[in-house]
Design a protein around this nucleic acid. Structure first.
Lengths: 336, 336
DNA sequence: ATGAAAGCGCTAACAG
DNA sequence: CTGTTAGCGCTTTCAT
């Protein structure tokens, strides 16, 4: 039966153990200067009373917070992406490991974040969240942005070089002899979507490979948009269909391959496809997907660790880490 | 520039506004008995100092917590399911709406939950978490389990009748004239996986439709397991392939359809497929998926609301809600 | 090695 | 309507 009485406090433990609350506090915090006799009496009392220190009181007394906030933009689409899942997992596991409380926020960016109870905040992208970051920074709370390099604010970030990712994709496809290329981009509202496309496009331009405007299809990272995009691309037969496709996420690439399969086209024999993410789902299908890898889980976990360092003032200055994306060659691209 | 100085407190605001801290507290908490003159002075001071009340101090003083914990089992697979995502979204949005802090835990069930800072805990399934629930209950923290009906503990839960879901699937397929049925189950470690299978199997037995043991394939909700299962099913030609399939999640059903398509089989002409979830991804593919709907988002949001009621002692007794799953007929099943 | 006492920042009687 | 005051449960000097 749940005991609805007042919670057991440090006083109860002290009384039962016959020591002062200070001593109890010491054993809770593993301060070494406690006789083993007292130590075990206190531990016994704690066990007997089923005592657990009140985290709020601890934080208040310590003056520091071991909680980090995690902000995810509120639009539903983001959740259906491998991207968000991996970040949630990465941040979640790292917090569990470091014994940090993870306070989760889904927000459209317009309501105020309650920054007061956290020691730091992690933002998964910053679509609409600039104001919130500024507010947090103003009250002295360190922030960490994942996957969005920001150069107009003094804020920590960890992300990959998406522009470079686009270049790598283009380079690989061109090296295979393709010259009728098409792409389905990610959401152009996001920095990642924009930069992957730009890197891809710039590389082709630089190497004199034409990229017909019609062959640039704006997606939004959803499978739905990938399907629509691919169907549109397939209907554009004025100069022959593209022979190679750069798709801005593996999820979308999988959908594209599904569409192709339905139409009786074979990957990579009829058409090459390269994705982005290195999503394990893309490993075992009819054809293992060639892709550009970005280490989302590690980025997220690392964001927590670095932020935690900053919170404890062990790190100084700004953390601004840009990771290199990496080409992972599997079976979905073939030489022309 | 982040201000590294001591945080501004209610005292600073009181001083600047020329009132007592009580009055400041009153305007923070919207106590009506404050002259509008004072109110605006305080508000001005708050704005000027960029003050934000310390949530820890508030919770400590109020003696109650407006934070709820959310526990997700730690195995990675769960994250790649529509199920987990919808729960996260539902819980997240509801907390945002109710201004509750959401404290997120990914845990294998063996470490201790820090129950001390939350007023209630929500469990997304309870694979390995019974001990944690018992511990929380023992210190008087209300718990809410989603999607797992539990009859051996006095704990709140909200879920659907998965057994009934299995029956509905069987009933529909049989009503279409099918009698060579097969199924790919969810993880049999989970209650949902187990019960869907049992409902399906029991219904068929009751109606004298044979279900060859070979045609019961154990999956684990992953796309991977669905692919493997479907391939196994397709290789079992001793008495002709099944004409209809019950797949325990839409995600898996989608993968099954992909496999079928690769083999040149048509859904529903050659084989009927019914899924489970009502995942929007299954809406727009080559064939809109017939499925059994479970309102995950609403279940999760509702779990938060009911739990919040219990935390405020507005609700008494146990919340034990069992929702009916619902057949959603689209295009992936045809009469034999 | 231990304890007394002073807060941490806020809320909630209680007076006025 | 407003201010004084006593905690909330814990940590942390500072003595002892």
């Amino acid at each position: 039966m749940p005991n609805k009485k007042r919670k057991v406090s440090i006083n109860d433990v002290a009384k039962l153990a016959g020591v002062s609350i200070t001593t109890v506090s010491r054993v809770i915090n593993k301060v070494p200067t406690v006789t083993s006799a007292n130590q075990s009496r206190v531990e016994k009392a704690i066990a007997e009373l089923n005592y657990e220190p009140d985290a709020n009181a601890q934080r208040l007394a310590r003056g520091i917070s071991n909680a980090v906030g995690f902000v995810i933009p509120g639009y539903p689409g983001i959740f259906y992406s491998y991207y968000a899942i991996e970040l949630i997992r990465g941040v979640g596991h790292a917090c569990e490991e470091l014994h940090l409380d993870l306070i989760f926020h889904i927000t459209n960016g317009y309501n105020d974040l309650n920054t007061s109870s956290v020691g730091g905040i992690i933002f998964a992208d910053i679509i609409e969240n600039r104001r919130q970051i500024e507010a947090a920074l103003k009250v002295g709370i360190p922030c960490m942005v994942i996957n969005n390099l920001v150069d107009d604010m003094d804020v920590n970030y960890i992300g990959i070089d998406n522009y470079r990712g686009g270049e790598i994709a283009a380079d690989y496809l061109v090296s295979l002899g393709h010259h009728r290329l098409a792409t389905i981009s990610g959401s152009l509202q996001t920095q990642s979507g924009m930069q992957r496309l730009q890197g891809f496009r710039d590389y082709l331009k630089k190497h004199d490979v034409e990229l017909t405007p019609d062959y640039i299809c704006e997606g939004d990272y959803s499978r739905r948009s990938a399907r629509d995009g691919m169907e549109k691309l397939l209907s554009l037969e004025h100069k022959g269909p593209p022979t190679a496709l750069f798709i801005a996420s593996d999820d979308m690439a999988l959908e594209v391959i599904a569409v192709l399969t339905e139409r009786g086209l074979k990957v990579p024999e009829d058409i090459s496809v390269i994705g982005f993410d290195d999503n394990p789902s893309a490993l075992y299908g009819p054809v293992a997907l060639t892709t550009i890898r970005q280490p989302l889980f590690q980025m997220a976990a690392n964001a927590v660790k670095r932020l935690s360092g900053i919170m404890q003032e062990k790190e100084d200055g700004l953390v601004q880490e840009i990771l290199e994306p990496e080409l992972v060659i599997r079976d979905s691209c073939a030489a022309l």
